[in-house]
Design a protein around this nucleic acid. Sequence first.
RNA 1: UCCUCUUUAGCUCAGCUGGUUAGAGCACCUGACUGUUAAUCAGGGGGUCCUUGGUUCAAGUCCAAGAAGGGGAGCCA
Length: 482
Amino acid sequence: MTELKRTKVVDVLKRSDYGSEVCVKGWVRTMRDSKNVAFIALNDGSVIHNVQIVVDPLTIGENILNRIHTGASLSVTGTLIESQGSGQSVELSAKEVIVLGEANPDFYPLQPKRHSLEFLREKGHLRMRTNLFGAIFRIRHAMAFAIHEFFNNKGFKYWHSPIITGSDAEGAGEMFQVTTLDLNNPPRTEDGEIDYSKDFFGKMTNMTVSGQLEGELAALALGEIYTFGPTFRAENSNTSRHLAEFWMIEPEMAFYDIHDNMDLAEEMLQYLVKYALDNCKDDLLFLEKRLLEEEKQKPQNERSPMPLIEKLEFVLNNKFERLTYTQAIEVLKDSKPAKNNKFEFPVEWGIDLQSEHERYLVEKHFKKPVILTDYPRDIKAFYMKQNDDGKTVRAMDVLFPGIGEIIGGSQREESYEKLKKRIDEMGIPEEEMWWFLDTRKFGTVPHSGYGLGFERMMLFVTGMGNIRDVIPFPRTPKNAEF
RNA sequence: UCCUCUUUAGCUCAGCUGGUUAGAGCACCUGACUGUUAAUCAGGGGGUCCUUGGUUCAAGUCCAAGAAGGGGAGCCA
C-alpha cells in the first residue's frame, strides 16, 4: 500500500472533496466511545480546531482503541466525509489508525478539562499541547514575524547587538555575570580581589540588559536599525509583568526626533495589533471566549471594560493620547483620587510616576494608550536628550491599559559635551563608555530609539494576565525549570 | 525585597466554633448506550490533609517556624 502524504488539520478542515482519502497525524484531545461508534478529536497544532475522527470499533479493533487516550499520538487514514453531527462540517471516517505513541492515562497530566495556569506552568514541557497555549504560541510566532515584516517594509536593518557585554554601564538593572573562572577557587590579585584578567574575556563580563548602546552605533551608520533578541535582568522581581529573561525589540533611528520616534512607536503597535486581527482570528476568538468565561466569576468592577477583540480594534482605531510629564502631573493633581487622598503616593512634580498614577491616566482618565514625554532629568537615564529648560529630558513612555509601560524610549543626547557631563555627574566610568562617546565626537546627528517589551505586547494582544504564560519557558527568581 | 492570600485524591475544590471510618465534580478502571462535541447513566479503585515543632484527652481544623505557589507593591520592558 502506497503511503498517503500527511495533510495538516488546518488544511483538512477547509476541504469539501468528500470521498477523498486523507491521512492526518496528531495528538488526541478527547475520545468518546459507545458500542457502535467512537469519536476522536485530533489536533496537530496547525490550528486551534480539531479534526473529528469517526471510528467503527469493528473496523479498527478493540486492541487499537484501548491504547488511545487523551495525549496519545496517532496516524489516521480515512475518507473525508460530510459530518452528520453539528459541531463541524467535515470529519474523517477512519480506515486505518496507527498508534504512534501512547499516553498512559495514569501518568499523563493533561485532562480534557480546564486546568489552572499555575498547574500548567509546572507542566511547562506539555502545556503547549493545550488549546490555550497552542493559541498563545501561534500568536507569539505571528507577532515576531509581523515585527520583522513591519521594520523590513520600512527599510530598517535587523541588527544583532551582543548578548555578552563587557560594560556594566548599560544602566537598566542588575546583571547576570558570565564567567569561566572556578568559583570555588578563583584567581586573585595581590590585593585579594578576584583577578578578572584571568577570566575568559580577560575582564568581567555580563549578560546584556539592553542592546541599545550598540544599536545606536549601528543607527549612526546604517540609518535605521532594530534589534530583536533576548535580554537578561537579574532583578529580584516577582510580578506578573517581569521576567529575568525576556525578548525586546529596540529600534534606533538616525535623524529622528522625539516626535518621529512617537509616530514610529504608535504605527508599529497598531501594525502588530492589526496583524493579529487579520491573521490570528480563530486563536483570538478562543482567547476572548475564555476570558469572558473567566471574568464571569469576578465582581463587575474587576472585569475588562471590553472584550478582547473589541479592545484590539479600539487601539487600532484611536490615536494615542500624547502629553508631557508636566501636563500629566497637572491632570493627576486635579483628579478625584488625588483630591480624596486616594493615591498611596502623593503627586508632585519630580516624582517617578507610580503604577497607580499610570493606571489612572490610562484606564480612568484618557481610557486609551497614552504617550508621556519630557520627564524630569533626574529620574531618567544618562543618554536621553536634555531639554533647554535644564530640568527635563526628551524621554517617552508608552503606557497601555492593564500593562503599564510597554515602551520606554527617548531622543538621544547627541551633544558630546552634554553627554560627557551627564556621564561624569552620574559617576559612570568613562573608560567603559569611550566608544559610545566617540559617536558624538565623530559625525554626531540627532537620533532616537525605544525598547518594546515583546512579552508585554503579548500580554496585551492575548489578554493574558501573567507574563509567565506568554513565553515558552519563563525564567524568574528561583525558577529555571525546563 | 515588602504586604497579603493559598497549600486536603491525578486535576479543581468543600470540610463551620478542634470530636468516631476525610468528601464532591472531573479524570482513571468496569459495564450500559446507533452520532458524540469537556457525551450521558450505573458501579469501582484512589489520600504522608505541604514540612517540622508546639498547644490539647483529641489537630485537616488552633499556634510558631520553614518551603512552594498566587495576587499587589518596588525596580523596569
